[in-house]
Every structure is written in C-alpha cells, then in structure tokens.
Design a protein around this nucleic acid. Sequence first.
DNA 1: ACCGGATGTATACGTGCGTATAAATTCGGT
DNA 2: ACCGAATTTATACGCACGTATACATCCGGT
Lengths: 202, 202
Amino acid sequence: MGHRERLLAGARVCLYERGYTRTTARDIVAASDTNLASIGYHFGSKEALLTAALVQAFEEWGVEIDRVLRDGTQPDLMDRLESMWTGLVESFGTHRPLWVAGIEAFALAEHLPVLREQLAETYTRARPALATFVIRNGGEHVTEETRRAVGSFLLALMTGLTVQRLLDPEAAPSGKELAEALRVIVGAVNDSTDTTHPPADA
Amino acid sequence: MGHRERLLAGARVCLYERGYTRTTARDIVAASDTNLASIGYHFGSKEALLTAALVQAFEEWGVEIDRVLRDGTQPDLMDRLESMWTGLVESFGTHRPLWVAGIEAFALAEHLPVLREQLAETYTRARPALATFVIRNGGEHVTEETRRAVGSFLLALMTGLTVQRLLDPEAAPSGKELAEALRVIVGAVNDSTDTTHPPADA
DNA sequence: ACCGGATGTATACGTGCGTATAAATTCGGT
DNA sequence: ACCGAATTTATACGCACGTATACATCCGGT
C-alpha cells in the first residue's frame, strides 16, 4: 500500500478521533506511519488531504445512512418509521465518530465550498429516498414537489435527531418516542381538521 | 466601556464573521480596538474569551428562537406550525450568522464540555416550549414523557431545517412545504391505521 | 498631592505549524 | 547492470500564533 492510501486512511482516523480542525499534519503522519513531506508530494497541502479524507468519510456516512434506510420493509407505515428511527439511534451508538464527523462537516461547509456541494448533493439524493418511506409505490398521484417536501421533512427530522443524540444522549428521544410523538401530532391534526370545534374528549 | 466588554463584543463579531476555530487573538483585538495583552488580563486566555463569547452568542440564539416561537398564536394547529416554520426560515435569512454559529456550536460541543452543557440545557428547556405548539392547554391528560417526545420531535425538525438552509438554501423546504409534508404524512398514517387495507383511492 | 491597586499597552519569547528543499531510495524498462 | 523517473525521507525554513513580561497610565481614597 503506497503512502497516498496510507495518508488518506490516517487522515480519516484523525478526522474521527480529533476532528477536522484539531488534526495537524504531524498527527496524520503519526497515524499513517509515513512522513511529513509525503503530504505535500501526494496532495499538495494538508488542507487538500484532509478535505479528501472528509469527502471520503462523508461518502461512508452516506452509505451508513443508506444501510439504515434499507431496513424499512415493514408493511405498516408507523412500524416502518419507528424502525428507521430506531436504526438511526443504533447506528449513532455504533458509529458515533462517523456521525460526529458528519455534524462537524455541516459547520465546515460554510467555509469549504467543495464540501458544501458534496453535502448538498447527498441531501438532494436522500430526499426522494426518504420520501418513499411515507409515499410508497402506489402513490403516483403526488407531485414531485410534494415528494421532495416529505423527504425534506424526514431528512430534517433525521439530522435533528442526530444532533440531539450528540448534545445530550440522555434527553434525546428514542425511535419509539419519536413514533409516539408523531402519533400524538397526527391525532392533534385530525382533531383540529375533522371538526370545526376540537372535540372536548368525546 | 472597558476593554473587557469591548473584547467580548469583538469576539462575538469574529464568531459571526469567521467562526470559532478561524478567529485568532489578533482578529479579536482588531475587531475590538484593544490590544493583545488585554485578552490575557481579562480572560486568562483566548480560548476562555472565545468560549464566553460563544456562550453569549448562544444565549442570543436562544432569545431569537423564543421570539420565533412566541408568534405561534393561530388557533388552528396547522396554521400555527406553518407560521412557526416560516418564521424560522425568515429568521435564518435575517440572522444567518447567528444560526451558522449555532450549528458550529454543535460540532464544538463534542470537545468543549462547558458549551455542550449550555446547549443541552437550552434544548431541554426548548422541548416543553415547543410541545405546547401541538398539545396546547387543555390536553392535560398527556404524560410528561409524551410532551417531551413531541417537543423533541419538533426540535429535531427545527434543527434539521436550519442545517438544510445552511447547506443548500435552494433545495431546503419552506415553511409551507413542511406543512404540506406534514399533511401528507398525517394522511398516510390515517390511511394505514383507519382500515386494515389501505383504501385504493375511494 | 500622593500613593497603590487596577487597568491598559508595547513588545518579545517560545512553540508548533504547514511547507519547501534536497538528498536518498526504490523500481520498472531496456 | 544501468539509467531515469517516481517516490520516500530527513531536515530546515519562515511564519503566525498564544502568551508572558515589563512598563505606562489611570483613578479613587486619604
């Protein structure tokens, strides 16, 4: 394995262990068992190397998301959503550094256009994929915009869930709790639209 | 105004303009029209100053959220939610640096315990506040956990919405689109629970 | 008027950083 | 076996950073 690959691998490790901004060129060298000058030789700069590694990590992140989403085979909608959210929470437990790196990437995107585009693209692809959780084959009458809106909704929920897990795992909701919350919300919407006056408990 | 306040103000400006990790001690000095040594004198270190400024900025962020949420006075639930989301999107437009700083704070929280606790606390307070958007006075029969779950759900949605706005304002959903998405989801849930077989269009 | 602590300032120090340079090594082609 | 390009290595340069030091200034109390 050439130093180029070793550097990329080492940079990914640093990305997970120390984060983008905290890793130095010498950290990467130590983690990849190479030497300082090879960064310049193979990537031109430490920044370029780290960005390449981040893009790679982010692709891996996308794969992990896909994996979580692919499990949504339950026939019942609520079951499907709940298992998706539970899978997400589990994935966050087992692949925490990956998710943390993903969140750091949000912040970095503001100053790294390359990364921002990569993230935007992944999100754009994720929306319709997520929408199928709700709309399912057979709902061909919904417009493309509606489908995208549903995808955005679920995507936002997903992102927000991971952020809550990051900040405060104790307080963050479980998949089951999210499902319950959705049921409550659905009930509330039904109550407010079915009748002119919300039913007083009857 | 003493140099202490000037430094804090300058640090906040840098936080908004360059972000936490990119601002140097000399940046802050330039932005606050003070001198290098005053950082050490008043705050001990640049890190301490910047963290103090970030906590301050984050409090301001909390105030901005409160402001957005306070507008939710519409009697109809969907109207209330939609106007909340629209307000959020507007706020993101007018106070973008504030929201970006908030997102950067998520990433920083991983390595700055002080900040993490601050964020976790704000989120904990936000949950019940958000829940009232759906549950409303009169729904005393729901448990505290359910209330928190609903709050978590809406909070996640909010966070995810801001991230999407950051990454790709074009593709990010508007408040109206989110409301439509919710209607579609509610419809789908109803279809899947009202009958044993989902209705084939009737 | 004068003292002493608090605050402001100019500047220098040491360090760790990313990168550049030049020499050493590897290795495939002939 | 030998050459030349590609790669690896050791090392040094220059710089920007955070911080410390030593001095100047301010200001309330007496």
